[in-house]
Each structure stands twice: as C-alpha cells, then as structure tokens.
Design a protein around this nucleic acid. Structure first.
Lengths: 352, 352
DNA sequence: CGCAGTACTGGGAGCGCTTCCAGTTTGTTG
DNA sequence: CAACAAACTGGAAGCGCTCCCAGTACTGCG
C-alpha cells in the first residue's frame, strides 16, 4: 500500500510538494479556509442554528473545495455516540450463520439502516472468544444499539442484555425470560396452522420433529403442534426431538418410521429437517403425500424445489429484520416501543 | 431504557449515591486507584515495556476492581486505527445479499476475524445512498481495511478502491480491471469440468445458461463452457443469457427448449437458475438426466434436494471468505500477498 | 566512590470534533 | 436615538487514550 498517511522520512519543508498523498482535511482547515472559527464550521456541518447566511455559504464552499469529510471517530468521541449498531448472533455452532435465514434478516435490517447514518456491525458470537467480546460490547457501549438473535437455552447474554447500558432488541424470544423489547414471528400460530392442515386433509396419525427445544422458536412450534392435536382430539405423543439441521431431520424421520410405521402425517419444525426427512421417506419407499403428508417451517428458497415441493409455513424474515431495526431506532430515540409478533402463514404446495 | 449514562436532573452531590449507574471507568481512574500515572497504566494495558513489576500488578488489580475496559473510540482517535474492517457487497439488487452464498462468505470471514481484535462491519451498497457511503468510506479511512465483493460491470468503485487510502482486497475479479489483491474461485476451470462431464457422458447438443456477463464470475463460467466444447469440437452457439437468479433461469430454459428441442445437455451457471430450469424441464415432460442432463454451479445447500439431485460445481465459499480476510490482514500488516485462486470441483449427483 | 548506562516514571501534547459560554454585533421598538 | 433582546461569534474546555520526551532512580564497573 502506497498512500499510507505518513512519510516520516521527509524533512519539514522538503521542496518536493508534488502529488500530495495528503492527510484528510480537518475541520480546522475548513474553518481557516472559510475564514470562520472552528465552532462556526462545526455548526454548519451539523446544521445547527446561529450561523449567518454568508458564513454558512463560505463554509460549504470550503467543504467541497477541500473534499472534507468529518472524522467519524473524533465525532464519536466528542458526542459519546458511536454511530453504529450491531447485529449479534449468538450460538454454539460456527457455521450456523450460514443458514439463509440470517442472510434474509440482514437484508431487512440493512434496508432500514440504509436510511440512517448508522453503520452495521456483525457479531457472530460463536466461540467463547466471540461471546466475551459481545458481552463486553453490551457493557461498554461500543455501539449505540444491539440486535440480539438466536439465544439458546440459558445463554447468560440474555439477562446481561436486558440490563445493558445500551438499547437492546431481541429477535425471537429466549426461553428463560421475556425481554422488554423484541420482535418475533408467530411460531406457535404457524405450527398450529400447519398441523391443522394435516388434520383437515384427513391425517390421523400425526407426528412432529421438533426444533431445538432450548430455543423459543423450537418450543413454540411444538406447542402449536400440540394445540392443534388437542383441538382435534388426536394423539400427540409422536414427537421426535430435532434441532433444525438437515441431517438431524433425516435421523429423526427414521426413528419415527420405526416407532410408528403407520403414521400418515408429520409436521417438521424446519424446512432443512424436512428436506432430510423427505429423502429418508423416499428411500423407505413411502410416497409423499400419498402415504405420508409432510409440512415444514420457514419457507426457505429451496422449499419449492424439493420432490415433491414442500408445503410449509412462511414467516416474513426480511420483515423481522426490518422491524428489529425499526424498534431499535425507536428505542435509541428514547421511545418505548411495544414488542411485535409477526404473522406466519401456511404455503400449500404438494407435500401435504 | 433505564441505565442511560446521564441523569442530568441530579444535583452535584445528591446524597442518593446508592446504585451508581456509573459512567464507564476511565484510564485516569485506573491510574489513580493503582497509584501510578496514566502513562504507566496505558503501558500495562498495551503491555508495553518500561513498567516495574509492582506497578504492573497494581494496575492489573485496579483494572479488575473497576471492571475497566478501554474505550475503543478514544483509542481509535489516538492511534488513527479504527479497529474494524468492512465487508462490502456492491450491487443493484437490494435482496441480492439474501443469496446464501454471502452468508457463507461471512462465516469464513468471521472465522478469521474472530482471532483478532477487529470488528466486522457489513456494507450492503445496494442503493445509491449505500454506494455513496461506501465510496466515502474508501476515501476517508473509516475502517482499517475493506473486502469488496461482487462488483458489476463498470462499477466506479473498482478503480476508486484500488487507489483508496485503505487496504482493499477483492472477492472475485471485476471484469474491467485486474485488482492487485484478490481471491477468486476457479470459475473457468469449474465450468470446464462441468461441461466436460456432459461431453464425457455422451451428450452432443449442449447448451448453457450464463450468469450475469457483467460480472467476472459470469464471464469466466461462459469461457469455461466454451473451452470444453472447443476441445470436444462441439457446437457452442447454444447460449442463453441469464443472471444467476432462479426465475431468469426458468425463462432461459424455456427459450432454449424452443431454440433447440433436441438438446441433451445443459450447463447452468448457478444452482438457483438450475432449479428454475429443472422445473421448466419437468413441466415440459423432459426427463432428467434421461432426455437432458443438467449441471449447475455453486453447490448450494438445496442442490442435493432437487428432483433429481443436482450435479454441480462446488466452490469453497467459506474458504473464500477466510482467505479474503487473511489477505486483508496481511495487507494491513504491510505485506504484499499474492492473489489467490481457489479450486473448484465437480460434485456428481443424479442430474447428469 | 563517581560516572555512564539502563530501566522506569509521569507530564503534556496531541488525535479531530462538539458544545458551553461570555462577549460582540445586529435588529427592534417605543 | 436610547435601550434591549435576539442572533451570531469564537475561545476554550473537554471526550479518553497514546506516546514522546525530559527527568529520576538504580545498576554495575573502573
């Protein structure tokens, strides 16, 4: 890299002033060139009042002449505002962010942040190291706000977050406590819808493969399943414990097939697991939906391409991101937004 | 939010000093408590030499007593180093980051950044506003380094980036110029492999659906396709222009079917498009791979669940992210790393 | 016992910006 | 035209940290 900011070996007034890989211009330089004080210059930049029209113009001119851009760090130090928020994803599996779910969330978050001056920092707190950093961040105000997703079980971050010195909004509710500010999808309602669909289509021996039960979403989807079966007066004991991942789904499906060879419907708490299950079903020679109807959850992009295309529950993931960001903004503005639960809906394709 | 840093309505020495939602302790406070100068305290924190054993201990003790954490902003201002790098994804489509590809890249990047003290900022420069911000960032050193991906056509960022005042590494090569530092996948080689596979399995009327030809990857994959056909002495005129997205893939496939009803193999530059194509093929009553063999590119997670499972070219996406990050780190350390091209390999499943 | 090293030590000057405040200018009004 | 308010102005004090440098304390050696 040429263009590093310093060339220490040059003498004070070395004649060779050609091509200046100059330091960024500072506010002082702007002020001087415009013939005003630094304070005045600062005021026009933050367009605060108390600057005469003439000086305001002069400063503006100086700014583009010099190509001045305020130094964000200095400003942050002076204002005690970092100018950035972080999206933190906590969890134990390093690769878990690879789930397209998060990518969608990011798109949503970004869409609202793009309207502001805030930067987005990503914190994948997967290792202990990452966790520690995130904790520190919550305590020490290295960001102006935090969006926290995917807390597992009794993640200590949960409580830490709620008493953090910086606004925090949760994406999804952790199991162990109800955060003050969160946005979640209606997981329970969606699962219920899915299961009802199975019931309505005449299935009577209905199983489920759950998500991770140490997560709010996993638990809620199981409850929705149970809700529906209770209403229908059907047996709800056919439960296999999964964790959202594909291979786990296949294994759970195998077990289910062993436990209840005559089952005719299954609600699976994630599309990834459903994909795994579909494959097992195919290998076992069961036709879908002929022998067994299956419905998934999430409506990921791949769901319409499985064989057969997967009936599943759609949740508005980008909206989730958007709303988290909006809520955080509100919080940072001193408001007290209410928690938000986003609707889910059944997408009927061919697997059920 | 309780716990905001200031409670302005409290008088100077209000008796109610209970539960202090105190400001973060500063270095001065640490120094005072340890009975040393601020400089000394600073030295032990950055574990620089020239501090006696005793004082070092004292400072350490003061630090945990107070729960002191250095203020990153202040440090950044003093050192002229931000302590953060940005992963920038440029493009026109707001939703394009939803492509799981990027999620994987992020995982890779994160895995190496996690070993450092650097934060990761994400910049989805999709709108003009986002672009402008990114440009500014390149000029004004708001980050210590930049990873730049997915430049389209003649994106002005490309040249801007190379003369930026901050280290930049490219992910993939833009079409219009060869960056100094980049890591890319062997797109051309992969495409060639894919096409050769088609040839070897006896296909003779082979088409391709290209990616966006304003991107390096799109172009390279087309070239790889042509390479293989040239060697085999086959006609290479069956080219439909796509852009990586699914629906575009379906449409291109339809056109292909019209143009050449007797085609028996197709190489498609992305799995997403391949999925769209597969559906069209199904609707048209063509069997895969019986009538037509298809091979995709990317090996996304969904590829093994299509009907039939998709033969495709795998590229090491996480590794791409990892290597970008590593290269950036090297650059920031003043080294001059060489560009890197990561291998791709064919994953044979059932569609070809 | 004196002197050159060597290892510490802390004062102080920034880094670039915001913001308070006292002082100055300008404009209004009876 | 005097008297005041309102609008501007710029000096100066930070924000919390790093790092240079002059000074002090201590070591070992002749």
């Amino acid at each position: 890299m040429t263009g590093l900011p310093f060339r220490p070996e040059m003498k004070e007034n070395d004649a060779v002033a050609i091509e200046t890989p100059r330091r960024q211009p500072t506010l002082d330089e702007v002020a001087e060139r415009a013939g005003v004080s630094r304070s005045a210059a600062s005021r026009v930049i933050n367009n605060a009042p108390h600057v005469s029209r003439a000086k305001r113009e002069a400063v503006r001119r100086a700014i583009d002449d010099l190509g001045y851009v305020p130094n964000a760090t200095a400003r942050a130090l002076a204002t005690q505002q970092v100018g950035a928020v972080v999206l933190a994803i906590s969890g134990d599996d390093p690769g878990m962010f690879a789930d397209p779910f998060f990518a969608e969330v990011v798109v949503g978050v970004n869409s609202v942040l793009e309207e502001t001056e805030l930067e987005l920092m990503l914190s994948l707190a997967t290792s202990t190291r990452g966790q520690a950093r995130l904790e520190q961040l919550l305590r020490t105000r290295q960001a102006d706000g935090v969006m926290l997703m995917s807390l597992h079980g009794d993640d200590p971050l949960a409580t830490l977050a709620d008493q953090a010195s910086v606004p925090v909004v949760f994406g999804g509710r952790p199991l162990t406590f109800e955060p003050r500010y969160y946005v979640d999808a209606d997981n329970r309602g969606g699962a219920r819808l899915a299961t009802e669909h199975l019931v309505k289509s005449g299935r009577r021996k209905i199983a489920t493969i759950t998500g991770g039960l140490d997560e709010g979403a996993g638990m809620a989807r199981l409850q929705g399943f149970q809700d529906a079966l209770a209403v229908a007066g059907l047996d709800n004991s056919l439960v296999e414990h999964g964790d959202f991942r594909e291979d786990v789904g296949s294994r759970a499906m195998s077990r289910l097939l062993e436990r209840a060879p005559d089952l005719d419907g299954v609600f699976i708490a994630s599309d990834q697991m459903a994909m795994g299950a579909l494959r097992v079903l195919g290998q076992a020679g069961r036709s879908v939906p002929g022998d067994i109807a299956v419905v998934g959850f999430n409506d990921i992009a791949g769901a319409r391409h499985t064989a057969p295309p997967l009936t599943t529950v759609n949740q508005p993931i980008q909206a989730l991101g958007r709303e988290m960001a909006r809520m955080l903004l509100a919080l940072m503005a001193g408001e007290q937004p209410s928690p938000l639960i986003l609707p889910t809906r059944l997408v009927v394709r061919e697997s059920a």
